[in-house]
């Protein structure tokens, strides 16, 4: 049996189109049984697999500008595929990198809550359950059986709606197909975005929209060749699979830790 070609699922978010409406955040919460508490205004404790950040250019009135930046898990591949910051530190193998899909998994029952992965994630994409989740009386009714609710003491994060991939694969298998189509596997946030700012697909597949939007250079750890495309903290060399598009230079610059007055983009530093 011939093996399928490895896929590399990735996301492209057009920041020119993103309106910061928050639909992606809520679509994610309701798809993935994300818990909530009475006060969610302490953002260090608020679990949001997908979080929309608000960036400003810092210029005084009236030259101020705002840009919203949705941040899911970046599903980093690292410099050598599988060498993601979190995966390489997990002592319990509770998080792992799939070379078949490029998705970083999180296995809650294996996690014992050391939070080493949180410390190593440069994107704050991982969240710790300090409390047991509590759904007010009757609200457990809407919980989806596709994603297990987490318990106190474990770390959780965006999975690129991996259960949707599994369902799509199952369906394809039942229909005697080996591969799934682009539209058969889409994350909840992609689907919900009313502005059409989020695109999702296989970065290895030249027929997929994500590939054509950023034209990743796979020889150089997937760096985008589209001049408007960028990845967060590119210089750390985490090789993320989430790309952003922006026509505004200041937005592209805040995507990395640029020093004031720094003119040129330096080559990524290779870690590990």
């Amino acid at each position: 049996m011939k093996h399928n070609k490895a896929q590399k699922f990735g996301m492209v978010i057009d920041l020119d189109k993103c309106t910061g409406c928050g639909s992606c955040m809520v679509a994610c919460m309701s798809e993935n049984n994300v818990p909530f508490r009475k006060d969610e205004s302490d953002k260090f404790l608020s679990i949001t697999w997908m979080r929309v950040y608000r960036l400003t250019n810092g210029k005084p009135f009236p030259n101020t500008d705002i840009c919203y930046l949705p941040r899911p898990c970046m599903q980093c591949a690292g410099q050598h595929e599988g060498h993601s910051p979190c995966v390489s530190v997990c002592p319990a193998i509770a998080t792992d990198y799939s070379t078949e899909t490029g998705i970083v998994s999180q296995i809650y029952t294996r996690c014992f809550g050391c939070r080493y992965c949180m410390a190593s994630c440069p994107y704050h994409a991982r969240y710790f359950n300090w409390w047991d989740p509590i759904w007010p009386d009757g609200m457990e009714k809407y919980l989806s059986p596709n994603v297990s609710p987490r318990m106190r003491g474990v770390v959780e994060k965006c999975s690129f709606c991996f259960h949707r991939y599994q369902l799509a694969k199952e369906k394809a298998f039942m229909e005697g197909r080996r591969n799934i189509e682009e539209n058969e596997y889409q994350t909840a946030c992609t689907q919900a975005c009313p502005a059409g700012a989020v695109t999702f697909g296989d970065l290895n597949n030249p027929d997929h929209a994500v590939y054509n939007l950023v034209k990743p250079d796979h020889k150089h750890s997937g760096r985008p060749t589209n001049p408007h495309a960028f990845r967060l903290l590119e210089r750390l060399g985490t090789n993320p699979k989430v790309y952003y598009l922006s026509s505004r230079k200041w937005v592209r610059q805040v995507g990395d830790n640029y020093l004031k007055n720094e003119a040129k983009v330096k080559k990524p530093v290779h870690h590990g």
Binding site: Y108, D132, W135, P145, S148, P149, R150, M151, R152, G153
Partner: peptide, 11 residues
């Protein structure tokens, strides 16, 4: 520390 009976298991 995780297998608490009160963590819901959606049917």
């Amino acid at each position: 520390t995780q297998m608490w009976p009160w963590t819901p298991v959606p049917k």
